[in-house]
Computed example of a mutant assay.
Amino acid sequence: MTANTSKLLSPEEIAVRAGEQLTFLHLPDAGVFAARALRLRALAPGHAMGDFLMFVAELADAQHRALAAGQPRVLPTPEQVDAAARDGVPLLPASSWARDPAWRDALRALLRDLSTRLAAGPAQNAVLELAAASDEHLETQAGRLLNGVMLGLDMATAPLIAAGLQLYFVQLVQQTARAFDGAPVAPFGRIDDATACPCCGSRPVASVERLGAEGARYLACGLCAMQWHYVRIKCTHCQSTKGISLQSLVAADGAQAESQPAVQAECCSECGHYLKLMHPARDNGIEPVADDLATLTLDLLVSGDGDGGGHQRHAVNLLLLFGEPDDSAPPPGRGH
């Protein structure tokens, strides 16, 4: 497989198309994890990463069951809402938010639930071992994961920690939105950094052309699952409207793998970064986290590991980190 590049015309014209009539934010709904699990199971058969996709599907199902249980979370105060709106920053910054300690109990319950769906073996053992880990270990690993610190991060259990954090932040966003519905100051809205999640400040996992929004592009957060409007043909890293092109997979013989690929890489020659652009109109089952996992080949090509242009990935998918595992990461046993 190679990458196919197509230049787009008049990026400035498209970039200035009015977004004011569009809904700026789409909050995660009650079925966010169920939809992810369904998509992963559809993508897994015959996929080179099929076993991993099925494992993540089971993980997403466990997240869905935990979300449906509706555990209450400690919410931000009106003063914190006012301050975030005034300063133009995310209300719930993932890297510094004081997490409710109950997130650890929710993670342990999620892991025990997941373990009952797994066959006896190394995967089940790893899940149960993490469920028995100390509070200190879980908090340390969560802090490293949310701050992008690879040193000391246990790559093997990072997706499990990430699942607990996703559950916590989705619950936090949903419950905060309900608690402040109709309040004088909305908890979530536009912030100064248009490329970051308006809720938790995370980088997007992908961008999606939402159905029913006249082809408008939304960035999708891989942590809290919020989607926010971001104009098309504009770099999600440096915000340039110049040098934008789309790359997609083509077959080894040069034939187009799909006449209208559902997932492409939007590349910026100005800063050398890219983010995947997903088209639900071409495949209405698309789910940003799931489809990002399933299109790793596109990442390899665009990043230069194949025949792509050597672009750097802008996205963050906490379930599949790009980097080398660190040998200094301690095991997640009870004593750590």
Rank of each mutant, 00 (worst) to 15 (best):
A3L: 14
N4I: 02
T5H: 13
S6T: 15
K7E: 15
L8A: 10
I14C: 12
I14D: 13
G19Q: 04
Q21D: 14
T23P: 13
P28R: 03
A30K: 09
V32T: 12
A34C: 07
A35L: 12
R36M: 13
R41G: 10
A42Y: 05
L43A: 02
A44Q: 03
A44S: 14
P45N: 07
H47T: 10
D51I: 06
F55R: 09
A57L: 04
E58P: 01
D61K: 08
A62M: 11
R65W: 07
R65E: 15
G70R: 10
P76R: 01
E79P: 01
D82A: 15
R86N: 09
S96I: 04
P101G: 05
R108L: 01
R108F: 00
A109H: 10
A109M: 04
N125H: 13
N125V: 14
A126C: 04
L128A: 08
L128D: 04
D135T: 10
H137Q: 09
L138P: 07
E139P: 00
Q141F: 09
A142W: 06
L145R: 03
L146A: 07
A156T: 11
A162F: 04
F169N: 07
T176P: 01
T176L: 06
R178Y: 00
P184Y: 08
P184D: 02
F188K: 01
G189K: 06
R190H: 13
R190S: 09
D192I: 08
A194K: 08
A194N: 05
C197D: 07
C197R: 04
C199F: 00
C199L: 00
G201T: 11
R203L: 15
V205H: 12
V208W: 00
Y218R: 06
L219V: 08
M226V: 14
Q227P: 03
H229C: 02
Y230S: 09
T236H: 05
Q247D: 15
Q247I: 08
S248A: 13
A251C: 14
A255H: 05
V263T: 12
E266R: 12
S269E: 15
E270W: 11
L277V: 14
M278V: 07
M278F: 03
P288F: 02
A290Y: 02
D291P: 05
L293I: 06
S303W: 03
D307I: 08
G309D: 10
G310E: 10
G310Y: 12
H311Y: 15
V316Y: 02
N317P: 10
P325M: 11
D327T: 11
S328Q: 13
P330Y: 07
